[in-house]
Design a protein around this nucleic acid. Structure first.
Length: 335
DNA sequence: GAACAGGAGGACC
DNA sequence: GGTCCTCCTGTTC
C-alpha cells in the first residue's frame, strides 16, 4: 500500500537505520550522513540504558526511517508531518541553517548552540512522529502501545501489520503462540532464526515500539495505553474511537476512524462532503486490507467489505448518495 | 473488468 | 440475535 502510516510506511526494509555511532555525532553530521548514501549497516535502536544516553541515536534512527529518501527534510522544519503535501520552499525552513555566515555556531536563548537547538527540535519532532504512528497503529489494531502487554493474538496482529507495512514475507506462523513478553525477550538473532528474511527488520521495529513505550512511561508514569492522547491530532471523536472500549469495532466506525485521519489515510478514503457524511473510497484495496488487518482477516477484500457496507443500507447507517457514484457512500447520520 | 446489489449460509461473540 | 465473513448470481458503469 502507500500505507496507513506515512511516518513508517515509506521505509524500505533494506535501509532502515543509522549506525550506532550516530549517537555521538551532531545533528548536521547525521543529516549529512543520511544523505551520504547507502553505506549503512542494519542497526536496531534499543531503549537507551539511561535517560539521556542513546536517546539521540533512537530519535535519529527513527528520523532516518521516517525520511529515508530525503535527509534534507531536516531543513524543512515543523509541518513535515504533512508529508503527502508538496515540499515547502526552503525559505520557510526555520529549523536548521547550516549555512550560517562565517560558519560560526550561533547561540540561541538558553545557551545552546544553534546546532544543538536544531537537534533538539528535530528530536522532539521525530519523537512526536514515532508516538503518533504508534498511536495510530494501536488504534487500528486495537492493541496497547507497550508490546509487553500483548496477547498472542495482539502479536499476530502486529506481525501482520508490520509485514504489510514493510512488504515483509509472512512470518506469523513462526511466531505463533508467542505473547508480548516472550516476543520482547527475544534477541535479534532469535528473530532471524524464526524469520531469516525479515526477522531483523521485525526486531528493529519491535525495538522502536519498546523504546516508545519506555519513553512514554518515563514522561507520563502509569499504564501505557492507546487511549493516552499525545497531541492535537488525537482521535477527537469519542463516539467512533472504539479501540478503547473493549468492544469489537464496527465497519462503519472503522471507516469513520480512517476519515478522521486524513493525514494518514486521505489517500485511501476521504470526505467528499463531510457535512452530509458523503465519503469516497479512493483505494478500495487498501481500505479493505486495513480492515482485514484490523479484524485479523487476511482474506478481506473490497468485495467483502462492500457487502458489509451494504448491510448497513437496511440498518440506516450508510447509504448511497442521491447521486450514486462508484466507491462513494454516505453516512445517514453524519458526524 | 470493476463496482454494485442482494440472497444465502455460517462463524463468532 | 446481531454482526460480519464468505460465496454466489446477476446487473450496471
Amino acid at each position: 500500500m502507500g500505507s496507513a502510516s506515512p511516518g513508517l510506511n515509506s521505509v524500505p526494509p533494506g535501509r532502515l537505520l543509522l549506525p550506532p555511532d550516530t549517537a555521538s555525532r551532531t545533528g548536521l553530521e547525521k543529516a549529512a550522513a543520511g544523505a551520504a548514501g547507502p553505506e549503512r549497516r542494519d542497526w536496531s535502536p534499543s531503549p537507551p540504558a539511561t535517560p539521556e544516553q542513546g536517546l539521540s541515536a533512537f530519535y535519529l534512527s527513527y528520523f532516518d526511517m521516517l525520511y529515508p529518501e530525503d535527509s534534507s527534510w531536516a531543513a524543512k522544519g515543523p509541518g513535515a508531518s504533512t508529508r503527502e503535501e508538496p515540499p515547502e520552499e526552503p525559505e520557510q525552513c526555520p529549523v536548521i541553517d547550516s549555512q550560517a555566515p562565517g560558519g560560526s555556531l550561533d547561540l540561541v536563548p538558553g545557551g545552546l548552540t544553534l546546532e544543538e537547538h536544531s537537534l533538539e527540535q528535530v528530536q522532539s519532532m521525530v519523537v512526536g512522529e514515532v508516538l503518533k504512528d504508534i498511536e495510530t497503529a494501536c488504534k487500528l489494531l486495537n492493541i496497547t502501545a507497550d508490546p509487553v502487554d500483548w496477547s498472542p493474538g495482539n502479536v499476530q496482529k502486529w506481525l501482520l501489520w508490520t509485514e504489510h507495512q514493510y512488504r515483509l514475507p509472512p512470518v506469523g506462523k513462526a511466531f505463533q503462540e508467542l505473547g508480548g513478553k516472550e516476543l520482547c525477550a527475544m534477541s535479534e538473532e532469535q528473530f532471524r532464526q524464526r524469520s531469516p528474511l525479515g526477522g531483523d527488520v521485525l526486531h528493529a521495529h519491535l525495538d522502536i515500539w519498546k523504546s516508545a513505550a519506555w519513553m512514554k512511561e518515563r514522561t507520563s508514569p502509569g499504564a501505557i495505553h492507546c487511549c493516552a492522547s499525545t497531541g492535537e491530532e488525537s482521535w477527537t471523536d469519542g463516539e467512533v474511537d472504539s479501540s478503547c472500549s473493549g468492544q469489537p469495532i464496527h465497519l462503519w466506525q472503522f471507516l469513520k476512524e480512517l476519515l478522521l485521519k486524513p493525514h494518514s489515510y486521505g489517500r485511501f478514503i476521504r470526505w467528499l462532503n463531510k457535512d452530509k457524511g458523503i465519503f469516497k473510497i479512493e483505494d478500495s484495496a487498501q481500505v479493505a486490507r486495513l480492515w482485514g488487518i484490523r479484524k485479523n482477516r487476511p482474506a478481506m477484500n473490497y468485495d467483502k467489505l462492500s457487502r458489509s457496507i451494504r448491510q448497513y443500507y437496511k440498518k440506516g447507517i450508510i447509504r448511497k448518495p442521491d447521486i450514486s457514484q462508484r466507491l462513494v457512500y454516505q453516512f445517514v447520520h453524519p458526524i
